[in-house]
Write a protein that binds this DNA or RNA. Structure first.
Lengths: 117, 117
DNA sequence: TTTTTATATTCCTCTGCAAGAATATGTCTT
DNA sequence: AAGACATATTCTTGCAGAGGAATATAAAAA
């Protein structure tokens, strides 16, 4: 998880992942699309590979790199545990709106009671 | 997006986010739970705040930090575009299994034709 | 007003890591 | 066999950024 994040938190590597979303590509292709030097691309691919985000299929002298879904799935699972936060927030928002309506209905110039917590 | 990833790709900050998942907390609370020094926690909170992952409510001398869902939602949206990859992979896996069954059925010692591409 | 409490900021140092250059490895072509 | 081509690895340098220590800010308590 941390390794996945660290791998993605670098612009070039992020771009590589984005490119591989459309399908596997050989290194050279990535090189000229990203306009980076070949060694740096290889090094980034190494990091991505170590993080399990990417795997290579050997085709003669070329390596065709493809995305591995597992780490991204893991990320999604992690994120799901946060979903209740924004779902909760919508509840809060509803509550807030109701409160406001109530206030407005009751009295217009009423002092705001600071929402104690 | 990149800023979100960079902010999360640091163990202490990741932990802070995890702690805030259970609700808002003042800085001091985070300090003693993470067993970090207060200045480092404040600095991490600064980074998280700049990334929009966190916001502070002022309570006298204390700042109560809370998660902001937007960046995480954005992350989830980004991830969704990758879902079709693993859904697609299951298709591929099925295809692969069929292929293997075919090969096995036809001939056992057959030379592997390198999947030309 | 002075002191205490809570947090933020600054300055310094040190480590990790990304880019560059050169080279190694390995496979295809001739 | 000797190149040519595709990719990986190594070494070096430079810089961002994380931690430590000291200090600034600002509100509460005394």
């Amino acid at each position: 998880m941390m390794e996945t994040l660290r791998a993605l938190a670098e612009p070039s590597r992020f771009q590589i992942v984005e490119l591989l979303r459309d399908g596997p590509r050989p290194v050279g292709d990535l090189v000229h699309r990203l306009r980076l030097h070949q060694p740096q691309v290889s090094k980034h691919l190494r990091v991505l590979s170590d993080a399990g985000l990417v795997e290579a299929r050997v085709d003669a002298q070329r390596r065709i790199y493809a995305l591995r879904p597992e780490p991204l799935q893991e990320l999604e699972v992690w994120l799901e545990r946060y979903r209740r936060i924004w779902e909760g927030n919508f509840q809060r928002l509803d509550a807030l709106l109701e409160e406001l309506k109530d206030e407005e209905r009751k009295s217009k110039g009423k002092k705001r009671v600071p929402t104690k917590r």
